[in-house]
Write a protein that binds this DNA or RNA. Structure first.
Lengths: 218, 218
DNA sequence: AAGAAAAATCTTGTATACAAAATGCTTGAC
DNA sequence: GTCAAGCATTTTGTATACAAGATTTTTCTT
């Protein structure tokens, strides 16, 4: 990456968009924000470009940049794609994963389990993320891994909301074990299907997600 | 999008990277290129950022930007992801596609067929692209469609190379028909598998692709 | 008073000027 | 002659100044 400063600004703005400081449709004022960050317009505009490429803001020529929060439909679409990408990871990983990585997943799962027992949502969140990152890596496809990370990051605040739901942690946990089992057996189809079901937002979870919009603070 | 000028520059540079004007590892000189395009460094740097986000160049802080052509491994990985994304489109489209879109695909295929008969590679390329764009759209998932378009665009020069191979047009044509047939039957699994096989680069095609690197001019 | 046209203001897009860091070159010492 | 240190040059990153388009306000006409 190029600019330490623009990077930090982009990250900060991203956070503020996620946590609801900026609502959908809000215009981001270059001058105001530049003053706020204590920099000139130049690095700020560079940050804008990154956010635009991530889809978080929309740049309209000669008009300015506007926050673009995903609506229910787009959110569902993103989760659908996430489920498919991760399912692909699982399908590939079932053939490519090694013993050490499998063991790592089991250990991560054990820590997940401990978090469920102690009702430690933060710990669960951390270990759950770790589980998924391992899955991406074990696809053996670096490009796929990067794409997964990108979308994973984008959906972060919404996933967090979901985990808050009662019973979701335990269910998620059980699904993790099914995934590991399928990977152990080298069963590509089963692994893919288990991951798809784990990630997809459907039925009751869809309603829950809808009820939680706009997203709560990180 | 924001900047008409930076956009044009980004596009032009992209073309030059694709067509081999800039080789892997080449440094892109801001001042030189700015003069060449008749603009200042500012819009040029904005163009750089876009290319960096697309993965075409790498920006190293305080060092400059360098062309980053994908190597064989990364290319294979990208095709693998493309195959999966398109397979997902097919799986979803099998349930969601309507009669008018199916008819459109058949007509596009007919024009493909005509292009094969007249050995018109350009026409085939055009209609083949159209076929895939319809598939993306018919997934019924706008986000997925956009992601597919992004990667499709990125792989454009390499796909073009492949079509030049003898017999590939006819084979591709037959695969298109299998895809349409599966979609007509509403057979999600078959449609996904047909598309995966159509897009994936494996066996002999892998060797051909490797032999064609670096990519030839558009 | 209402609507339209024109001017003033504000905001974005671009160019240039300035600052800081990295590279390369020169010079000196061993 | 070679290596290192310091200086000069080049190049990136940032700030500011300038230009052009968009918006708003004001004023004039009907």
């Amino acid at each position: 990456m190029e600019l330490r400063r623009a990077d930090k600004i982009a990250e900060a703005l991203e956070e503020q968009i996620f946590d609801g400081t900026f609502a959908d449709g809000d215009r981001l004022d270059e001058i105001r924000l530049a003053a706020q960050f204590g920099v000139s317009r130049t690095p700020l505009r560079e940050a804008f470009q990154r956010l635009a490429q991530s889809g978080l803001i929309e740049q309209i020529p000669r008009r300015g940049v506007f926050v673009r929060q995903p609506g229910p439909v787009e959110l569902m679409e993103m989760f659908e794609v996430m489920a498919e990408l991760e399912a692909t990871c699982a399908r590939l990983a079932a053939r490519r994963i090694g013993d050490t990585a499998l063991e790592e997943m089991r250990q991560t799962n054990a820590r997940c389990s401990a978090a469920v027992q102690s009702q430690d949502a933060d710990a669960y969140y951390r270990e759950n993320e770790r589980f998924h990152l391992i899955l991406y890596r074990q696809s053996g496809n670096g490009f796929l891994e990067q794409e997964c990370l990108r979308l994973h990051r984008r959906l972060k605040p919404y996933r967090r909301v979901q985990l808050r739901l009662r019973g979701r942690m335990a269910q998620s946990m059980a699904e993790h074990e099914a995934i590991v089992a399928a990977l152990e057996n080298g069963d590509s189809a089963a692994a893919a299907e288990a991951v798809r079901a784990h990630v997809a937002v459907q039925g009751a979870r869809f309603q829950d997600l809808m009820a939680s919009l706009k997203p709560a603070a990180e």
